[in-house]
Structures are given as structure tokens and as C-alpha cells.
Lab assay of single mutants.
Amino acid sequence: NKFNKELQWATWEILNLPNLNEEQVKAFIDSLKDDPSQSANLLAEAKKLNDAQA
């Protein structure tokens, strides 16, 4: 289903952001699991944090 694909993509993207630490990655992944419908928003937040920590 649509959410599953978005969830998988967002998870992969977050796991490959170079500037997030392990705790941050885990928090984002946990949030994705809690509410897959928010995957696009969570991914945007993760990318923002990644850029801020570059």
C-alpha cells in the first residue's frame, strides 16, 4: 500500500543521512513506525536537522 512504500522510502532516506547521530535516527524511525502517515513530514524534519548539523 501507499503508506508502506512511503514508510520504506523515508526509513531508507533517514538511515542514510550522514549528520544524524544514532539516537536521532532511532527517534525518527520510531516516530515513523508510530505514525506512517507522517512519513513525508518526518523525512523533511530529519533532512532539516541533518542540514543544520552539517
Rank of each mutant, 00 (worst) to 15 (best):
N1E: 07
N1T: 04
N1F: 00
N1M: 02
K2L: 14
K2W: 13
K2A: 15
K2R: 06
K2D: 15
K2G: 15
K2Q: 15
F3Q: 05
F3L: 09
F3K: 02
N4S: 04
N4F: 07
N4G: 05
N4T: 03
N4A: 03
N4D: 15
N4L: 06
N4M: 05
N4Y: 11
K5L: 05
K5D: 15
K5P: 15
K5V: 12
E6S: 02
E6W: 11
E6F: 12
E6I: 05
L7H: 06
L7F: 10
L7E: 08
L7D: 06
L7Y: 11
Q8P: 02
W9D: 09
W9I: 14
W9N: 06
A10R: 02
A10H: 07
A10S: 05
T11D: 03
T11K: 09
W12H: 15
W12D: 15
W12G: 11
W12T: 15
E13V: 07
E13Y: 07
E13R: 03
E13M: 07
E13S: 07
E13T: 11
E13G: 04
I14R: 01
I14H: 01
I14S: 02
I14G: 01
I14W: 02
I14A: 02
L15N: 14
L15M: 14
L15R: 07
L15S: 11
L15P: 02
N16E: 05
N16R: 10
N16P: 01
N16Y: 04
N16T: 10
L17G: 00
L17K: 01
L17Y: 05
L17A: 01
L17V: 00
L17E: 00
P18S: 07
P18Y: 06
P18N: 06
P18D: 06
N19R: 04
N19D: 07
N19P: 00
N19L: 03
N19V: 01
N19F: 12
N19E: 04
N19I: 01
L20F: 01
L20W: 00
L20I: 05
L20Y: 00
L20A: 00
N21Y: 13
N21I: 08
N21W: 06
N21L: 14
N21D: 10
E22I: 10
E22Q: 05
E22R: 10
E22K: 13
E23F: 12
E23S: 12
E23P: 05
E23A: 14
E23G: 09
Q24M: 04
Q24P: 00
Q24V: 04
Q24E: 04
Q24I: 04
V25L: 12
V25N: 02
V25I: 13
V25Y: 06
V25A: 12
K26F: 07
K26R: 11
K26T: 08
K26Q: 09
K26Y: 08
A27S: 07
A27L: 10
A27G: 12
A27K: 11
A27Y: 14
F28N: 00
F28R: 00
F28K: 00
F28L: 05
F28V: 02
I29W: 03
D30E: 12
S31Q: 11
S31A: 11
S31M: 12
S31P: 01
S31V: 08
S31G: 10
L32P: 00
L32N: 00
L32H: 01
L32S: 01
K33F: 11
D34V: 15
D34M: 15
D34A: 13
D34T: 13
D34Y: 12
D34P: 02
D35R: 08
D35P: 01
D35F: 08
D35N: 07
P36H: 03
P36F: 09
P36G: 03
P36M: 06
S37R: 07
S37W: 07
S37P: 03
S37F: 08
S37V: 05
S37E: 07
Q38P: 01
Q38S: 11
Q38Y: 04
S39L: 13
S39H: 15
S39M: 15
A40H: 10
A40K: 14
N41I: 11
N41T: 14
N41R: 07
N41Q: 14
N41A: 13
N41M: 11
L42F: 09
L42P: 01
L42K: 06
L42Q: 04
L42H: 04
L43T: 05
L43F: 05
L43M: 09
A44I: 12
A44H: 14
E45H: 07
E45N: 07
E45Q: 13
A46H: 01
A46L: 02
A46M: 02
A46F: 02
K47W: 07
K47Q: 13
K47Y: 15
K47P: 00
K47N: 08
K47I: 05
K47H: 10
K48L: 07
K48P: 01
K48Y: 07
K48E: 10
L49K: 06
L49V: 15
L49S: 03
N50K: 01
N50Q: 02
N50T: 01
N50Y: 01
N50R: 00
N50I: 02
D51F: 09
D51A: 12
D51T: 07
D51Q: 13
D51V: 09
A52W: 09
A52H: 13
A52P: 02
A52Q: 14
A52F: 13
A52R: 12
Q53A: 05
Q53D: 03
Q53H: 07
Q53W: 06
Q53M: 06
Q53E: 05
Q53V: 07
Q53R: 02
A54F: 10
A54I: 08
A54D: 15
A54S: 11
A54V: 09
